[in-house]
């Protein structure tokens, strides 16, 4: 099994996300994460999909997605040529005693504390998935109450390979 990150540029139609996720589910492709958001051109949405499978499946994923009428472009974001970032919000139980150590751990990882209550706090962390995983491992000594992860968004490095969807 291999893991690949694809970036898609799609027409921002009402059914586009369900068309893409429907394609993955009915053909039995695995999605690890999917993120979507408007691009500078509001008619175009950028989607980052992380999926896994063997070479044949990954090749089919690329071709089947490309075939969808709403899809302008699909490209693999190869790890060595791309940057990936994910946002995680982590609510941890923290009383007066454990609060200090959590705050220092958070600052070591350059994460932010964005909410504090008597019983706990919320940490906001952005980074590659490895960094988030490492941080979560360190938090295993504490009680994680709630966790929200966005899945990764990615872009290719440099300016050589930018896709400009043709303007109407």
């Amino acid at each position: 099994m291999k893991r690949k990150v694809f970036q898609l540029l799609v027409e921002n139609t009402s059914g586009v996300l369900s068309r893409i996720s429907g394609l993955f589910s009915r053909r039995g492709y695995n999605i690890e994460s999917i993120t979507a958001g408007e691009t500078a051109d509001p008619k175009i949405t950028r989607i980052t999909i992380v999926c896994n499978g063997d070479d044949e499946i990954l090749d089919q994923i690329e071709k089947q997605v490309a075939k969808l009428v709403d899809v302008c472009d699909i490209k693999e974001l190869k790890p060595e040529q791309s940057v990936y970032r994910e946002l995680a919000l982590i609510k941890v139980r923290a009383d007066a005693k454990s609060r200090e150590s959590l705050i220092s751990l958070t600052s070591v990882f350059r994460a932010n504390i964005i909410d504090v209550s008597a019983e706990g706090l919320i940490i906001e962390m952005t980074g590659g998935q490895d960094k988030i995983e490492a941080f979560l491992r360190l938090l295993s000594d504490y009680e994680i109450l709630e966790l929200a992860r966005t899945g990764i968004a990615g872009l290719r490095r440099g300016t050589d390979d930018i896709v400009y969807p043709k303007v109407d």
Binding site: V10, E11, V69, V71, C72, P165, K166, V167, D168
Partner: peptide
């Protein structure tokens, strides 16, 4: 009001 049928399709994704 009126009917204008486009002469050609303009689909940037297809």
């Amino acid at each position: 009001r009126r009917f204008n049928y486009p002469d050609e399709v303009n689909m940037r994704t297809y």
